[in-house]
Design a protein around this nucleic acid. Structure first.
Length: 449
RNA sequence: GGCGCCAUGGUGCAACGGUUAGCACGCGACCCUUUCAAGGUCGAAACGCGAGUUCGAUUCUCGCUGGCGCUACCA
C-alpha cells in the first residue's frame, strides 16, 4: 500500500491554456485548483501552451498569460511547453492510429461532413430532420477522393459504450453512437504529408507523454472526455483520473465573457486587487472546506484543499464578494506584508519616494496603517498619497479643492491630517500646504451645512 | 433537434433521512464614530414543480421544468 519509494505515486497535473486571449478568471481558477492539488499532494504542476490553432493563435499573448499566473503566485514546475514545437509527436501518434485501423483518412470537405447544424435550425418542427452523428463513406474505405487533402479521423467503435469515473461528477457513460468520428489531424494546408493536430489528439498525446496522472479542467470538457478515453486506449496508454470543475458564470448565468465586464486576471491586478485575496475568493467559488471557513490565507488553502470538496454546480462570479475579500486582506494583512504591496502600487503610479523605505520608513508604515481601514483597493493608497506632495495641485486649484472635498466625503480628512502632522520636519512644506487645504475644505463644509 | 451535466435565499457555500435549514457577500436598521470606513448587534431573504420510497424527505428514485455544456479540420 505504501510504496513510498515509487516516484510514480506523486501526481502530475497540468494547466493548458490556449493563447487566444488573456488569462481569464475561469482559466485562473482551473490553474489554481491544479496548483493547489499538486502542492497539497507533493506533486508536479506543469504548464503547457496549446497553440495548434494557427488561425486564432496569438503568440504575443503568451507572455501576458504567464505574467498573470506569476502574479497569482502559481509557480509551475515544468514548462511552458509549446505544442507547436512538438508537432512530430502528434503525427507519429496519428500514423500509429492509422496503421492500427483506429483512424482513417477522410477526404470530405469540412462543411459537408459537419452536416450543417445551424442551417437546419430554422426548419422548426421538422420531425425528419434528425441530425444524428454523421458518418461518411471514407470511414468504410470508400473515400470520395477530391482535390482536398485528407484529414485524419478517429474511427469510433459503434454499438458500445465508453465510460469514465470523474472525481467530482462521478460516473459518466456515453454511447459511442453519439460520438462523431472526430478529427485528429486537420487536412494539411501546405504541401506537407500530414496536418496539424486538433485539441483532442494534442491533449491526449501530451498528457501521455508528460505522464499526467490527474486531468483537472473545466466542465465544458466533460462531453469530450469519452473521446479522449477512446484515444488513450487506442494508443495503448493508461487513462488518467479526471476531475472536472464547474464553470464560472456571469450575473445573467451565462458563461462569463467580456460583455460581463472585466474577465481578465490582469485587469484585476491593475484595479488594485491583492493577489492573495483574489486567490482566496477564486478558490471558494466552486470549492469549500465543508465548514464555513472563508478567510483563508494561502498556507491554509494549501493545507485544506481537496478535489473532494469541489462542487458540481456552476457558479456566478460575484464582484462584490471579491471586493469584500480584498478589503479583508487590506485590513488583516500584517503591516510588513502590506507595505511592499503599497510600495509597488505607488511605484506603478509614479509617486514612490525612496525615503519612504529609508529615513521615513517609520512614518510611511504608520501612515499606511492609518489609512488602510478605509481602503478597498491598493490603488486607493496612490489616490490619497497625493496629499503628501506640496506641488500636486499647484497649478490646479479646482483639482485641489475636489481632492480635499473627496477626502472629507470618504472620511479621510482626519487620517490624512494625522499623517501629515507626523511628517518629519524637513517636509514641512507639504504639511502646511495640505493643512491649508483642509482648512479651506472645512470652510466649504461649514458653508454647506 | 440529439446526447450529457447541474438544481438550497439575489450571490457564494454548509447541512449528506429527523435542525427553529447554518455561514458569508450584498441589502435594511441600530450601536460605535465629529465625518467616512472598519468593527459589533439585529432584520428581510431559500430547499424549482410533481409523483414515489420511507414512520419521516432539502437530503434517495423517477418524470417535468429551468439552466449550462458538447454536438468544429476551436480549444
Amino acid at each position: 500500500m505504501t510504496d513510498s519509494i515509487s516516484t510514480n505515486s506523486k501526481p502530475r497535473v497540468r494547466f493548458a491554456p490556449s493563447p487566444t486571449g488573456y488569462l481569464h478568471v475561469g482559466g485562473a481558477r482551473t490553474a489554481l485548483f491544479n496548483w493547489l492539488f499538486a502542492r497539497h499532494e507533493g506533486g508536479t504542476f506543469i504548464l503547457r501552451v496549446e497553440d495548434t490553432d494557427t488561425e486564432r493563435n496569438r503568440p504575443e499573448l503568451v507572455e501576458g498569460i504567464l505574467a498573470s499566473l506569476r502574479w497569482l503566485g502559481l509557480q509551475w514546475d515544468e514548462g511552458p511547453i509549446f505544442q507547436s514545437q512538438r508537432l512530430s509527436l502528434y503525427r507519429v501518434a496519428a500514423e500509429k492510429l492509422l496503421a492500427s485501423g483506429a483512424a482513417y483518412l477522410c477526404y470530405c470537405a469540412p462543411e459537408k461532413y459537419a452536416g450543417g447544424d445551424a442551417a437546419t435550425e430554422t426548419d422548426a418542427e421538422e420531425a425528419p430532420t434528425r441530425r444524428r452523428v454523421t458518418r461518411c463513406a471514407c470511414r468504410d474505405g470508400h473515400p470520395a477522393i477530391g482535390a482536398q487533402k485528407p484529414a485524419v479521423r478517429f474511427r469510433v467503435q459503434l454499438g458500445v459504450t465508453t465510460s469514465f469515473e470523474d472525481i467530482v461528477f462521478g460516473k459518466n457513460e456515453t454511447s459511442n453512437d453519439e460520438i462523431e468520428d472526430f478529427v485528429l489531424l486537420r487536412s494539411p494546408k501546405d504541401g506537407s504529408e500530414l496536418g496539424l493536430p486538433t485539441y483532442q489528439l494534442g491533449a491526449v498525446v501530451d498528457d501521455i507523454e508528460m505522464r499526467i496522472t490527474h486531468v483537472i479542467r473545466g466542465a465544458d470538457h466533460i462531453s469530450n472526455t469519452p473521446k479522449q478515453v477512446m484515444l488513450y486506449r487506442a494508443l495503448g496508454a493508461e487513462v488518467p483520473k479526471f476531475a472536472h470543475v464547474p464553470l464560472i458564470l456571469g450575473p445573467d448565468r451565462k458563461r462569463l465573457s467580456k460583455r460581463h465586464g472585466a474577465t481578465s486576471v490582469a485587469s484585476y491586478e491593475e484595479e488594485g486587487f491583492i493577489a492573495e485575496a483574489f486567490r482566496n475568493f477564486l478558490c471558494l467559488l466552486g470549492w469549500s472546506t465543508g465548514d464555513d471557513s472563508e478567510f483563508m490565507r494561502t498556507d491554509e488553502l494549501l493545507k485544506r484543499f481537496s478535489l473532494e470538496g469541489v462542487s458540481r454546480t456552476n457558479g456566478v462570479f460575484d464582484r462584490a464578494k471579491l471586493e469584500w475579500y480584498n478589503s479583508q486582506y487590506l485590513q488583516k494583512l500584517p503591516l510588513d506584508e502590506l507595505l511592499p504591496l503599497v510600495q509597488g502600487e505607488l511605484e506603478r503610479a509614479g509617486i514612490w519616494r525612496a525615503e519612504w523605505n529609508g529615513a521615513e520608513k517609520e512614518w510611511f508604515a504608520h501612515t499606511v496603517d492609518l489609512l488602510r481601514p478605509r481602503t478597498h483597493l491598493l490603488t486607493d493608497f496612490a489616490k490619497w498619497s497625493l496629499a503628501f506632495f506640496s506641488d500636486t495641485f499647484e497649478y490646479d486649484p479646482a483639482a485641489k479643492e475636489k481632492f480635499w472635498k473627496d477626502a472629507r466625503l470618504a472620511g479621510m480628512l482626519g487620517k490624512l491630517a494625522d499623517a501629515l502632522a507626523a511628517i518629519p520636519e524637513w517636509n514641512h512644506d507639504a504639511c502646511e500646504q495640505a493643512l491649508r487645504g483642509i482648512a479651506e475644505t472645512e470652510g466649504v463644509k461649514a458653508g454647506l451645512l
